[in-house]
Design a protein around this nucleic acid. Structure first.
Lengths: 369, 369
DNA sequence: TTTTTAATTTGCGCTTCGCAATATAATGCT
DNA sequence: AGCATTATATTGCGAAGCGCAAATTAAAAA
């Protein structure tokens, strides 16, 4: 696996992810190197079992040496992911393509740190064994949960739900419970990585992710690499919507639902009928305006190619918001000209997938790790 | 000058700029390479006349081989700068350290594009000859003026003052008037480059520049490299303050001054007495609030290490604003924890210096050009 | 004068990559 | 079938960059 230390190999892997199966010649063109260079790098990656070759079906019937397409080998890289909710935890094993090989979830009864981590560590271990894999074949375990980072790098502010937790230092506090390297990042930023590696942003250079769950988070990707800023708090869009005011968050939606006397008591239980209720329609109208404003702010600061919306709100709401934002002529006063593209996140349904994306990102992205 | 193509040489030059005179050993440490590598790169740079060696005065009296300090050779790189105002143009010749070797300015009478460019080209030419230099020793000429970039890359939207100008395409329209490569970027982003290369931000990794002149502009530097975003419109902070409303711009200040019946009719003519006038004091109060809000927005999106204030407002106003922003406990509701540092720009007095910084940046920065 | 110390340089070998020549596997032509 | 043509991939060679270890240099200290 030493190959992953080499920047050229990482760049190649990145291209395989974004450009699907490609020939060596195309890769050489995209990387702006000689075909011979690609051959050499690919040979190492083949040796290490990180990529596989297959025949090019579209190439049949044409003249010349038939190109062989290269692809990431699904089992070439394995990663574990852990997402910790206030109420449940989710764990999974994921391959190089972001396919979930196995997952478990359980509600959290005992919120003590070490008790919970014992359970989670055991869950990852169990799935590893059930798949017949060795922990040392894993590139790492990513841990994700709602919360902001403190000014000390790598340390996460205790979330409101886990007030008895210590301030988490990923490298020290999580490590004892896993047989592999452990990394952590908050839910929004992990979700963004899933989008970058497996989802709709595989070939978008610069984008901003707006994460609407119970709370509001976000992430920024610049040049296909996660930009964290000072104290890993870049793109913390939640901070632009004061908690004392109505805001475009899941909690706020649930409060609206409750006020309207509807039944749903959690984001997964909102029915189609609920969405037609007037107070919810009003909620969406308001959130549309708030996101328009946020998009203007993002456009005026980061000026990304795309703004991606994802999170745990009902799918129908996301679709509606994307549609309305895409259709809007202007994002605000004095704004004219083209918007960034608005994109619906594809990989936000399983937050533990985002967590699993983190080790893959750190070890395969050219500018990270 | 072929040395400047090499990334390692560029990285070394960047360090010389930010770390002042340094020994080879220190450079090796900073670059995380072997001292022998530094020796080899430095030898080339010495050959090319880009750096010079000098004795280390602090080293006298101590044992061992005395370290020799390396520095950029001032005349090793030359650049021309042009700033075009609605009313005047400014031209200059600048060396590698950002020292202005020569400058000229003149009011603009004929606003026709080719007439004006003839004059400007002649001005650069004249100064070049008066200094006894050859145009081919120049690394380029930078052109800067107020205005936003259009969606076509490299094309600047015609400014309101030069409505008869075509949409400028730097590489084509400017080139004929100069005997060296020409580059262009708007005033705010050029000013930011001056700050990055010569001013207060030489060793700040990520920062945002807030440019307050007649209008409002801005720029973003990520990892010591200018981030432009889509259509080079990242950090166009002016777009966050609608023109129909009071806003923190020089034009707005001048309007306030006029309304108060004060004499000053341009930003350079504001007197100390004027600044004590109640309406101006109120103006500063309002602008403080607007910049606080902008700083919150910047912090929540880019999360930079520093926010830099510069432009053509009176110095006293900048000092006052920096002081107040630095002292503020919070930038807005729900904001706590540390701010970014607020910094007063050092290199904003001569906008043509910013223009001259552009070719230097493009040819010596590791991630540009 | 010799020793010690610290910064720099030199020699050697490994790795990476571009360039040009070659190999390979398919189709098309006679 | 046999040979030409074509497109893709590979191999061999040489140049460049860099780490490592040994050598060199210029100063102070013994």
């Amino acid at each position: 696996m030493n190959t992953l230390q080499k920047p050229s190999a990482r760049r190649l892997i990145q291209l395989l992810r974004s450009q699907g199966p490609v020939s060596r010649l195309k890769l050489a063109d995209l990387l702006d190197v000689q075909p011979s260079t690609v051959t050499r790098i690919v040979n190492q990656l083949l040796d290490d079992g990180l990529v596989v070759e297959e025949a090019d079906p579209n190439r049949a019937g044409r003249r010349g040496y038939p190109s062989k397409l290269l692809q990431l080998r699904p089992m070439g890289l394995l990663s574990a992911g852990v997402f910790i909710d206030p109420e449940r935890y989710y764990t999974c094993i994921v391959n190089a393509l972001g396919e979930v090989l196995s997952e478990e979830t359980s509600s959290i009864t005992d919120r003590g740190f070490s008790q919970l981590m014992e359970l989670i560590g055991a869950s990852v271990d169990r799935q590893t064994r059930q798949l017949g894999l060795q922990p040392d074949r894993f590139i790492g375990c990513g841990i994700s949960y709602p919360g902001q980072h403190t000014s000390k790098p790598g340390i996460v502010r205790q979330t409101q739900y886990f007030s008895e937790w210590p301030e988490i230092d990923a490298s020290k506090d999580f490590a004892p419970y896993f047989d592999m390297p452990v990394h952590q990042l908050n839910d929004a930023k992990c979700a963004c990585l899933a989008e970058l590696l497996f989802g709709s942003c595989r070939s978008v250079r610069n984008f901003n992710y707006v994460w609407l769950s119970h709370g509001i988070g976000g992430a920024a990707v610049i040049d296909q690499s996660l930009y964290l800023g000072k104290s890993a708090s870049a793109a913390e869009f939640g901070g632009l919507f004061p908690k004392s005011q109505p805001r475009p968050s899941g909690s706020d939606l649930l409060a609206t639902i409750k006020e309207a006397g509807l039944a749903a008591d959690n984001l997964e239980h909102i029915s189609k009928a609920d969405l037609q209720h007037e107070s919810i329609l009003n909620w969406v109208d308001r959130v549309e305006q708030q996101l328009k404003w946020l998009s203007l702010v993002i456009t005026r600061t980061m000026s990304p190619d795309a703004i991606v919306l994802g999170g745990r709100l009902p799918d129908a709401i996301f679709s509606e918001l994307i549609e309305r934002l895409s259709a809007s002529k202007s994002l605000g006063e004095d704004h004219f000209g083209p918007h960034p593209t608005f994109i619906r996140a594809e990989a936000d349904k399983k937050p533990h997938l985002g967590a699993a994306a983190l080790p893959l990102y750190l070890t395969t992205s050219p500018n990270a790790g």
